[in-house]
């Protein structure tokens, strides 16, 4: 049987097949392209992060010695909240316009596509936060020597945050006011990241070896990479039922 247009898949399936990694790469590219079409929204978590760190000197004291002591806690609390802020929108548009449906029916691994979405979230919030964190730390009295440690710990820790957050975002899909609930679901699960991350930052500021907590953060990130996309994929499927 022949007709104009393309042939049906079985005949050309092998030649046309897209691997799971290829599909995930396209999904990542798509999210990045979309994000750069709306640059204004990209800046929001960063501005939020900056203003939260600004609150502390104003609310507590401008003395650098006191601020330096608080700096790790301030940085990590602000980073956690900024990452959370962007999460609410992780799936919202895709759920609304049917993209998630198409992902779930693509014949590709939904887990791989969820991983791509978390990767995009990290590239758009986690990585910029990691690059901005040293500036905030310097303004809170941290020495310049601590910059490398701070960048490393926020960069690694935010990987875990993006992944944990994707589960919460997928579970609250379709709710009208999901912001508070999303925090309630995500924050308790994120506490280990906060603990290890703040410790690594604290050691870096004190000029001591921060490798041990950094490795623990790395372990959390690896665990997140292996398990979180699975859970997020399950949650997305449930939301489509």
């Amino acid at each position: 049987m022949s007709a104009p247009g393309v042939a049906l898949a079985p005949e050309r399936a092998a030649a046309l097949a897209v691997s799971g990694a290829g599909a995930a790469w396209l999904a990542l590219l798509r999210d990045l392209t979309l994000a750069f079409r709306r640059r204004g929204q990209l800046v929001q978590p960063l501005a939020f992060f900056a203003i939260v760190t600004l609150l502390f000197p104003l609310a507590v004291s401008p003395e650098l010695t006191r601020l330096r002591e608080m700096a790790p806690g301030v940085l990590w609390t602000a980073a956690l909240l900024a990452s959370l802020l962007a999460l609410e929108f992780l799936f919202r548009d895709d759920a609304y316009d049917g993209t998630l449906e198409q992902y779930a029916l693509s014949g590709q691994s939904l887990t791989a596509l969820m991983f791509a979405k978390s990767a995009a979230h990290w590239l758009l919030t986690g990585l910029p936060l990691a690059l901005m964190a040293p500036l905030a730390a310097l303004s809170l009295g941290a020495p310049a020597a601590a910059v490398a440690g701070i960048v490393a710990s926020v960069a690694v820790g935010s990987v875990a945050l993006s992944l944990i957050g994707s589960i919460g975002a997928a579970l609250t899909l379709g709710m009208k006011r999901s912001g508070a609930l999303l925090s309630l679901l995500t924050l308790p699960l994120s506490l280990p990241v906060l603990i290890f991350g703040a410790r690594a930052t604290q050691l870096a500021i004190a000029g001591e070896a921060y490798l041990a907590p950094l490795e623990l953060l790395g372990a959390l990130a690896v665990l997140g990479v292996t398990l979180a996309p699975l859970a997020a994929a399950a949650a997305v499927r449930i939301s489509l039922e």
């Binding site: 589960i167 579970l171 308790p188 699960l189 506490l191 280990p192 603990i195 398990l227 859970a231």
Partner: peptide, 17 residues
């Protein structure tokens, strides 16, 4: 799904705390 994710996390949270 949340309960299962939570149960995986409980030991990690306890250890980190």
């Amino acid at each position: 799904v949340l309960a299962v994710v939570g149960v995986v996390n409980v030991p990690i949270i306890h250890y980190s705390v």
